[in-house]
Design a protein around this nucleic acid. Structure first.
Lengths: 358, 358
DNA sequence: GTTCCTATCGCAAGCGCTTGCGAAACCCCT
DNA sequence: AGGGGTTTCGCAAGCGCTTGCGATAGGAAC
């Protein structure tokens, strides 16, 4: 059973021309229903499967999309990719995967004219492509869709980061916290492994603070790479503040896990001595009882994929921007601050003046 | 800047024939070094990039491999895929991703003659393909490599599951435990989401027990799907045993996380009242202080990919089987059992007879 | 019984690249 | 100087499919 050549065999067996076979098999009009059935049956019996290489050459279409992502080993991207891939497959597209872990491969991808001929479109996940990079792709005539950042002229889906940040911090404020810190994602130099820092979350944090007429303390805003280790050391830095916070809003759950680790190691009880709210609603957040912002990651991936397929079909740039909201998931890592200053950990117990309101 | 047709343009500009261009650009012998340089320069100036569709048609080679995996959203597969993908890309192959989440798509993949024409080879990750499925692929002339199971006639890499299981349980035995349970992975019906149950781990567990001349208690072997929820409920079931274990070996870290959750919820201290050892050395295991078996997941992925590229180049089936060992990573979730029967949790405190040795 | 239209199908020209084979051209020897 | 061996390159035949256009046949309309 080898590649019994092709159309010709079917054509011969069916007693028709190759063009008829081609049309019959692709349900193209111009063929009588009767011969269509016959050809299809014969093709099936022969186990004939059209060579995509041939059809690609002839049509220029590949029925394939490229999905590019900064990392596969992180939970978030895995989720998004799974959802997006599933939608694409359902729409009849193969997915070509490009992991752009470091700047080098990233450059190679956008500069090198890799795509045309391989894929009909590109789905960009949380990479925050530069305008130049986007142009490089569109110049090649590739429809695209972007997840995780907003780009003019490109259909994209992203989460209401600012609103979400505000909501998270308001929750802490409503619990009575006044000393609230923010742990953000720092763009690691030379790689895009952690994805792109969603800067808006910081703004939401500041929004909420100023709504509450609270001071903006620079020492309460720390940034680390988007890993548990990063969260861990960020929390450690916060603990060194002259007046440590009583609550912290962390820009990703993975970092929040690190935060919890540091706190446990330091003997600081959560939520007794420190409230923590994360961002992502990571698979394991429930287990760790972490209050967090859910932004339906898989739905985002699916929507982005849908945007791309409609762009592929419409062939006219749509530029829809889909904003997905985030909702607070309250778990056990947040609670009102201790009523009195009975903090029990070591550094210094001398935070005996409250934050003065502006 | 559109697809300025192709070889012909370059050929014309360079004043040579298309065949010369083709040969020059691919470093095929039979061309003087001088004209080669010239053609290459001109091609570069023109920004010419050969159409893969054309070359695929002509050569039959796609420079693409398919990677098939049961799931993307699980940590393990993300790791493996990332490592494998990176190796493949480095070897000059594009990677086509197939997530076979449920039986339906799985069947469609193996039955449907999707691959030939799309990919030159297939990398199968932890899917435990049936012999029939494998044959379907090899029949299409596709070299393959398998990760996570051993298949006759196919190059594969897998971990020494049995040894690893034995090691894990020995560790518990050496600590003095005698009532050791096993939580295994149950193949969920209708989907392969959790990958394939590594049955050998159970055997390793039994090996160690019989080495220590300990009873084999059927009620100490429970199986659930490979998720935290699964681990969680498995542990709950164990807690209902007439004589609950003092230690448990869990076949995956994700399940172990669930186990830890259940124990915490039940107020059972780890490792005081219950020792837990997992399997995978998951990213978050360190944070949760989980003793576990490390089996260098990314290395496995990379090795499997390497096996595939060499199969692709050699074109003669190699059938190497690469066994990777697992090593114990001792953390805080294991300790000697409490000297006396001072277990403190509720169900019943009536386990006043020790396990009788055989 | 003409005429004209429509539905059905075959012809053949690509799509862009690769490669076996033959033609030049050139070099080295004797 | 002529012959044999190399090297370098062009010709042209594909690879397997798609598709515009023309051909044929069967009916409908008059």
């Amino acid at each position: 059973m080898g590649m019994t050549s092709s159309v010709d065999t079917v054509a011969e067996l069916a007693g028709v021309s190759v063009s008829t076979v081609s049309r019959a098999l692709r349900n193209v009009p111009g063929i009588s229903e009767e011969t269509r059935k016959r050809v299809q049956r014969i093709a099936r019996e022969l186990g004939y499967v059209p060579s995509i290489a041939g059809s690609r050459l002839a049509t220029g279409k590949t029925r394939t999309v490229a999905i590019v992502t900064p990392s596969l080993s992180k939970w978030f991207f895995g989720q998004v990719l799974a959802a997006a891939g599933s939608v694409m497959r359902e729409a009849g597209y193969d997915v070509l995967l490009y992991e752009l872990a470091d700047e080098a491969t990233r450059g190679r991808f956008f500069d090198g004219p890799a795509l045309p001929g391989r894929a009909d479109g590109v789905l960009i996940l949380a990479l925050q492509p530069t305008p130049a990079e986007l142009e490089a792709l569109t110049e090649q005539g590739l429809p695209l869709a972007v997840l995780g950042s907003e780009q003019p002229g490109v259909p994209c889906v992203r989460v209401e980061d600012r609103d979400a940040g505000r909501s998270a911090v308001r929750h802490l404020l409503n619990l009575g916290h006044e000393r609230i810190a923010f742990i953000g994602i720092e763009q690691a130099a030379g790689n895009t492994l952690g994805g792109v820092p969603p800067a808006q979350r910081l703004l939401g944090y500041r929004d909420a603070l100023s709504e509450a007429a609270l001071d903006h303390r620079p020492e309460y805003e720390v940034f680390e790479e988007n890993t548990t280790a990063g969260g861990s050391s960020a929390m450690a830095r916060l603990l060194c503040a002259e007046i440590p916070p009583t609550a912290v809003f962390v820009a990703s759950d993975e970092m929040a896990f690190g935060v919890l680790g540091t706190l446990r190691g330091a003997g600081i009880s959560v939520p007794g001595d420190m409230s923590v709210v994360g961002f992502d609603n990571h698979e394991l957040s429930g287990l760790l009882d972490l209050t967090t912002m859910d932004h339906s990651v898989t739905r985002q991936g699916a929507e982005a994929a849908r945007l791309l397929v409609s762009a592929l079909q419409a062939s006219e740039t749509s530029e829809t921007t889909l904003m997905v909201p985030a909702t607070l998931v309250v778990r056990g890592s947040t609670a009102p601050p201790r009523p009195l200053r009975t903090r029990t950990y070591s550094p210094t117990k001398t935070h005996n003046h409250l934050t003065e309101t502006a």
